Amino acid sequence: MRAIRQTILVMLAFALLLGGVLIIVALVRDRPQDLPWTRLDLSQKVGAFTGRKIAGLTDDFAECRALLRAAGVAYTVLPPVRSGEQCGYADGVRFAPGGSRTIGFSPANLGTSCPVAAALAVWEWNVVQPAAQKHFGAQVVGIEHLGSYSCRRIYGRSSGDWSEHATADAVDVAAFRLSNGTRVSVLVDWSKGGEKAKFLREVRTGGCRLFSTVLSPDYNAAHRDHLHLDEAARGEMGWRTCR
Rank of each mutant, 00 (worst) to 15 (best):
R2P: 07
R2H: 11
I4T: 09
R5W: 07
Q6D: 10
I8T: 14
M11Y: 01
A13I: 15
F14W: 13
F14Y: 11
F14H: 01
A15S: 11
G19D: 03
I23K: 11
I23C: 04
V25Q: 03
V28I: 14
V28N: 00
R29L: 00
R29G: 00
R31N: 03
R31V: 05
L35H: 05
P36H: 03
P36R: 03
W37E: 06
T38L: 00
D41V: 12
S43E: 05
Q44F: 00
K45N: 06
K45F: 04
A55I: 11
D59Y: 11
D60W: 06
F61L: 08
A62F: 09
C64W: 08
A66E: 15
A70T: 09
A71Y: 07
G72Y: 10
T76N: 13
V77S: 15
L78D: 07
P80Y: 04
P80V: 09
R82F: 01
S83L: 15
G84F: 01
Q86Y: 13
A90K: 14
A90V: 14
A90P: 00
D91H: 05
V93Q: 01
F95A: 07
A96G: 06
S100I: 09
R101V: 04
I103Y: 01
S106N: 13
A108L: 07
L110T: 02
S113T: 11
C114K: 02
P115D: 13
P115Q: 06
A117M: 08
A118N: 01
A119N: 01
A119R: 00
L120K: 03
A121Q: 14
V122S: 06
E124G: 12
V127Y: 06
Q133A: 14
K134Q: 15
H135V: 06
A138Y: 06
Q139G: 05
V140R: 05
V141S: 14
V141N: 08
G142C: 10
G142R: 15
I143Y: 03
E144C: 02
E144D: 13
E144V: 12
E144M: 07
H145D: 05
L146N: 14
G147M: 10
C151D: 07
C151Y: 08
R152H: 02
I154M: 12
G156H: 10
S158E: 14
S163P: 04
E164F: 13
A166C: 10
D169F: 06
A170D: 00
A170L: 11
V171G: 02
D172Y: 02
D172F: 03
V173N: 05
V173G: 05
F176C: 04
F176I: 14
S179F: 04
G181T: 09
T182W: 00
R183H: 07
V184Q: 00
V184F: 03
S185H: 06
L187Y: 10
S191T: 13
S191E: 15
G194A: 05
G194M: 10
G194L: 14
G194D: 03
L200S: 01
T205D: 15
G207F: 03
C208Y: 01
C208G: 08
C208A: 06
R209P: 00
L210A: 03
F211R: 04
S212I: 03
S212P: 00
S212E: 02
S212A: 14
V214D: 03
S216H: 04
P217K: 05
N220Q: 07
D225F: 02
H228G: 07
H228W: 08
H228D: 06
E231I: 08
A232M: 11
A233D: 12
R234S: 11
G235C: 13
E236D: 10
M237P: 00
R240F: 09
